[in-house]
């Protein structure tokens, strides 16, 4: 039962990764692309790491994976934030809907 949930979560993580890479290629500017890349950082990593915890059971390895997950959850949004702040400081403007059409 737990194994099945783990496999479903891995599949979900792979799906999120696919969606996010699709967005990374198809979106127009750095802000939307970074938004798409952020899905890998949080959503996909969360799914895959939780699945890994479920699949390896209640061991020390699970605790280490949990720590990795916590650090990814803290650091990846910070990295995206710093990157986009640098983009704004470099003079980039977000594309608005009426301007892009």
């Amino acid at each position: 039962m737990i194994d099945t949930i783990g496999y479903i979560l891995i599949a979900l993580g792979a799906l999120l990764m696919f969606i996010s890479i699709l967005g990374l290629y198809r979106f127009p500017d750095v802000f939307t692309r970074s938004h798409a890349a952020g899905i890998i950082d949080t959503g996909s990593a969360t799914c895959v790491l939780i699945a890994a915890i479920l699949l390896c059971g209640f061991t020390l390895t699970a605790l280490k994976i949990l720590l990795i997950w916590v650090f990814i959850l803290v650091t990846s949004p910070t990295a995206s934030h710093a990157l986009l702040k640098a983009a704004i400081a470099d003079g980039m403007q977000p594309i608005h809907r009426d301007e892009s059409r």
Binding site: F71, V74, T75
Partner: peptide
């Protein structure tokens, strides 16, 4: 003025 990187760094540097 970079509040978020500062806070995260303060929390993460010992780790």
């Amino acid at each position: 003025e970079h509040t978020i990187p500062r806070i995260v760094s303060v929390a993460l540097i010992p780790a």
